[in-house]
C-alpha cells in the first residue's frame, strides 16, 4: 500500500492564513491503514487546527469528513457538501487523492496534509518499509523476491557494493543491505549461482524515466 507521513500541523496552518471555513478530508484506504490520514488522524488534525486558531483568536470553522477513497471519482463525490461549504480544503489522502479532489472541486483550493512517501508495508507495529518503486519491469523473479530497485540505496542489480557490512547498508545502520538479504534468500532457494550472472543495464523507460505512465486495457475499456 501507499505509505505516507503527516505534515507538521504548523506547516499546514501557515497556509490557512485568511480562511474562515476549512474542510479536512480524510481517506479511508492506504493512509488510514498506515495511521497517517484516515478518519482518526484527520480528526486529530482538525482538532489541532481548531486549537491553533483559537490561540490566535481567529474565528475559524472546521469540518471533518472521511471517505472510503480519494483516488476514485465516485467516492470523492461524497465530499461535495463539505467542500462547497468550505473556503479551503486540507486533504489527508496520498498525493493521488489530493490531486483528484483538487481537480474535481476547482476553483476551490485543496492542500496536502501528508507527505506521500513510498509503496511499502508495516514490518512491525509502527514501522513501515519501502518495498516497491513501481519501475514497471519486475525483477523479483531474479532476486528471490527481494527488490534491489526499491531496497538497495543505489538500486544495484549485480550484488552488494563494498559498503555492505554485517547485513547493513553503508548509508545507515537502520537499513538492511538488500543484497545481503537477496544473497541469503537465494541460498535458501538454491539459486545462489544466479549471483554470478551479469545483469545487463536496466531498461528504465518503463519506470518514471520514460515520462508519466499510463496503462490502457481494451478489455476493461468501455
Amino acid at each position: 500500500m501507499i505509505i505516507a507521513s503527516q505534515k507538521s500541523v504548523r506547516e499546514i496552518a501557515d497556509n490557512l492564513t485568511k480562511h474562515k471555513r476549512i474542510s479536512v478530508a480524510g481517506c479511508g484506504t492506504c493512509v488510514a491503514v498506515c495511521f497517517a490520514g484516515g478518519e482518526r488522524e484527520s480528526e486529530i488534525l482538525a482538532s489541532a487546527l481548531r486549537m491553533f486558531f483559537k490561540l490566535k483568536s481567529r474565528k475559524v470553522e472546521i469540518r471533518q469528513q472521511t471517505v472510503k477513497r480519494q483516488c476514485e471519482w465516485e467516492f470523492i463525490e461524497e465530499l461535495k457538501e463539505n467542500i462547497d461549504w468550505a473556503d479551503i480544503v486540507v486533504s489527508t489522502a496520498c498525493g493521488i487523492g489530493v490531486q483528484a479532489v483538487q481537480k474535481k472541486y476547482l476553483p476551490k483550493r485543496v492542500l496536502p496534509g501528508l507527505n506521500t512517501s513510498f509503496m511499502g508495508m508495516p514490518t512491525s507495529p509502527g514501522v513501515w518499509k519501502e518495498r516497491c518503486l513501481g519501475c514497471g519491469d519486475c525483477v523479483l523473479d531474479e532476486t528471490g523476491g527481494i527488490c534491489p530497485i526499491a531496497r538497495c540505496a543505489k538500486n544495484l542489480l549485480n550484488g552488494p557494493c563494498g559498503g555492505s557490512q554485517n547485513g547493513k547498508c553503508e548509508i545507515s545502520k537502520d537499513i538492511d543491505c538488500a543484497w545481503q538479504e537477496i544473497y541469503d534468500r537465494l541460498k535458501v532457494l538454491g539459486l545462489l549461482d544466479s549471483m554470478n550472472e551479469i545483469a545487463l543495464p536496466k531498461n528504465w523507460s518503463t519506470s518514471r524515466d520514460g515520462g508519466p505512465r499510463r496503462i490502457v486495457r481494451e478489455d476493461v475499456n468501455t
Binding site: 507538521s8 500541523v9 486529530i44 489541532a48 487546527l49 486549537m51 491553533f52 490561540l55
Partner: peptide
C-alpha cells in the same frame, strides 16, 4: 509534538 507545532 502536536502541541509544540501549534504553539502550546
Amino acid at each position: 509534538k502536536i502541541l509544540e507545532q501549534i504553539g502550546i
